[in-house]
Amino acid sequence: MSQDPNVLIGEMIAAGNERISVARDEVNRPMIHHLCDAMEETNPIYLDPEAARAAGHPDVVAPPSALQVWNMINPSDPVIESDVDRAYAHLADCGYPKVVAVNCDQEYDRYLVPGDLLTASEKVESFVGPKQTGLGEGYFITTLTTYTDQQGERVGTMRFRTLWYNPEKRNS
């Protein structure tokens, strides 16, 4: 329980191994419609090719915040263990079993259009702790996912930070 997670996770950050996943489907109009319907999104650049072209886009575009959507794990896919999963499991093993998402930082190089096929490459980027938080003692871990298109060009990145904590190790 008193194992220091900095050792193994530090090695993972130094190694920089990425989990690489290719989207099952291209960016496509039906899914853009689903997204807009669910969110009550009415921006015409997502829905009307003429309005999108008038705004300087080649076609309708996907909402930029949907960057992560195209490479989400399909429910029927086999689980492929990556360093990110191993780092999370290791934090639980070290006595920090509870998790809460803290930050999500997405940067977009360009808007995505139907036909784009994304590859996501995810790795552990940084790690901080132990820290006393309102939830208990814990560690912050940040993953970096880089999204590239069918030409290998980067289209965006996402940094995702979670806190792994032990609610029993709590000051107050």
Binding site: A38, M39, E41, N43, S65, V69, A101, N103
Partner: peptide, 30 residues
Amino acid sequence: NILTTNALVNRYVGEWAGPAARVGRINIRL
């Protein structure tokens, strides 16, 4: 879920900024 939160932030700012605007980054704390 977080992806819906991101989408709603995108919608809120996009409705104000208009269709000619380009979003370059959405950085949120949950």
